[in-house]
Amino acid sequence: MADKVIDARGSFCPGPMMELIRAVKEAKVGETIAVLSTDSGSKRDIPLWVQKAGHELVGVIEHKGYDEIVVRKLR
């Protein structure tokens, strides 16, 4: 279970990734954040940002109708 869950289903603007970045900024190092997304691009785009920003992609879980992407803040 992630420390924080962001329900960004149905969010086109600002969109799931912006919601995730905002939450990562506010989280403590070591915490995990799960973002729920109906945007099929999220599971492609979010890992790219996670790598660029130096965090850890804990996992991508496919649910019925949406994806759950879990990230750990590393720095």
Partner: peptide
């Protein structure tokens, strides 16, 4: 821009 493209909407 914060994302990997110029706006959140593709």
């Amino acid at each position: 821009f914060p994302l990997g493209r110029a706006h959140s909407i593709e």
